[in-house]
Write a protein that binds this DNA or RNA. Structure first.
Length: 223
DNA sequence: TCATTAAATTGTT
DNA sequence: AACAATTTAATGA
């Protein structure tokens, strides 16, 4: 994908005037990140709002003892990081590329200007924040109520939220180990869960790649 | 293009 | 957690 394509697919950018759009394009910086590299680290000052042009990143933290928890995987087409930008605080989480990725950095000044001048931009942010809140509430609910297979199914489907990540791509390039960090279970258990989900014809499992065959079925699996 | 090798990922215990 | 098997990517003939 290119920056242009990302903007074409972003609802907030569709609602900009040509002049606004021109300024946005001029001020966004495009930066590649290699697999395993950091987009930003916990504690970094928040200089920009991020868009994923290509690849896949995760938002995560590592505990003092070294255990890592992934909060969400963020696929191409998504925008994230507005929380810390809005609050003028340092980053609260690490953001790492799970494979070679390309990120759009919108400077905080551009972000603030859109916030002051564009209704569609504000509408988008409200929608996105609301959608995220729903997603994390649901994540807590599912963690406590669902069995492991269903939790893996939900973790996987969370990366295909059509509101947060509009895309027609039905594949994710992610290892089972990374999916285990996202679901909060062991890699071995993810391996078993994927076999169950594959049996149910909800996903197709290939080397390093998962293909969603039935998103609705994945969402409702085990409920 | 094919063979070899290293690295990553998966499958199993 | 450990280990074997499999797949991919890179390298060079």
């Amino acid at each position: 994908m290119s920056l242009e394509t990302l903007l074409q697919r972003s609802v907030w950018a569709q609602g900009l005037t040509p002049a606004q759009r021109e300024r946005v394009v001029a001020e966004i910086q495009v930066r590649p990140v290699e697999s395993g590299g950091y987009v930003c680290r916990k504690g970094d000052p928040s200089h920009a709002w991020f868009g994923v042009i290509d690849g896949l990143v995760k938002i995560a933290t590592a505990s003092a003892s070294g255990k890592s928890v992934t909060f969400t995987g963020v696929p191409a087409g998504a925008w994230f990081g507005e929380g810390s930008v809005l609050k003028r605080e340092n980053r609260k989480y690490d953001v790492m590329a799970l494979r070679d990725s390309v990120l759009a950095h919108m400077p905080i000044a551009t972000f603030d200007w859109l916030l002051d001048t564009s209704i569609p931009f504000n509408r988008f942010l409200t929608l996105q924040l609301n959608e995220r809140l729903g997603q994390f509430i649901a994540a807590v609910e599912h963690e406590r109520l669902l069995d492991t297979d269903a939790r893996v199914a939900r973790s996987l489907s969370s990366m295909f939220n059509p509101t947060l990540y509009p895309s027609d791509d039905t594949t994710v390039q992610i290892s089972q180990e990374e999916l285990s960090y996202l679901a909060g279970v062991s890699r071995q258990r993810v391996n078993l869960a994927l076999k169950v989900l594959e049996q149910a014809k909800l996903v197709k499992v290939d080397y390093g790649v998962l293909t969603i065959l039935d998103l609705e079925g994945l969402r409702e699996f085990g409920m």
